[in-house]
Amino acid sequence: MINFEYIRASSVKAAVEALAKNPTGGFIAGGTNLIDLMKRGVTAPTRLIDINNLPLKQVEETSAGLHIGALAINSEVSANDLVKNNYPLLSMAFAAGASAQLRNMATVGGNMMQKTRCSYFYDTAMPCNKRQPGSGCGALQGHNRMHAIFGASDKCIAVHPSDMCVALAALNATVTVSGPKGERKILFTDFHRLPGDKPELDNTLQKGEIITGVIIPKNTFNKNHYLKIRDRASYAFALISVAAALEVSGDTIKKASLAMGGVAHKPWRLTEAEKFLVGKTATKENFSKAADLAIKGAKGYGHNNFKLKMAPIAIVEALMIATGIA
């Protein structure tokens, strides 16, 4: 790892200023993604601003919903009674991520900002437009088993690897950020972006901005499930994951929110399937129709063609478990 200047920030303002003074620097929170990437030479910040002392660890419910600070630790949010009881989808998604040790280190902000696990991005000897714009995409014609089936471009077919983010997208969360120009809010579904011609940009956070937290509107979904399919039973990134949240009254679906992980450069909302489900009864047949709508336009790149078959099955399964039919 190339050495760097290390400073501890004592306030959000100080952190933002410290970064402004050294634009080739970066923030460090849990370190679980950044230190990995620095060891491999994928990134080499010249200054690290340790933000772990910032007062952004709260998990609290207000009339507007649930506020989670950017430095709240993944394992603590997952185990928080408020989250477990009122936002079970989020608790399940956290618990499905990484390992017990990593969840004790990883923060909510760091989790949002984590990089893709595409092996071409990680291997500095390989072409990768995300790591080195213009060098090409190694995955397009290469080993692309883990890669996107939705929203990819000919510049990049990487996926965002987070579990937490899939749940936050389904729960209509908002991200709060602070920067040199002040504070602003970003809809969670607008936070991550599709690769297009600029795969080097993972999200819409502006240079110099810091994430301060997320706000989740009061949860009215009474049927929730986070389904994660991976190569081993635990401690592996998702091949496909589905966050399913329904508001069901009697047998009728009043509200539906569905998002998938492991399939796109951002958590992928299944808006067509959601629209279809509203007003329908919760049956396997309806879930299957919704799943067929959800995967319209999906495209495989060879090794990941299996995801085209797996995706609709996973959607139905998640909805069946959420509603207790399965």
Binding site: Y6, K39, Q101, L102
Partner: peptide
């Protein structure tokens, strides 16, 4: 592994288990 993938480096920090390979010493002041 030195990359957070195996757990051989597990230690407790203030009683909580973590992977010591993915934490900087200076972060543990």
């Amino acid at each position: 592994c030195d990359y957070g993938q195996c757990g051989a480096c597990t230690v407790h920090v203030d009683g909580e288990r973590i992977n010591s390979c993915l934490s900087l010493a200076v972060m543990n002041e």
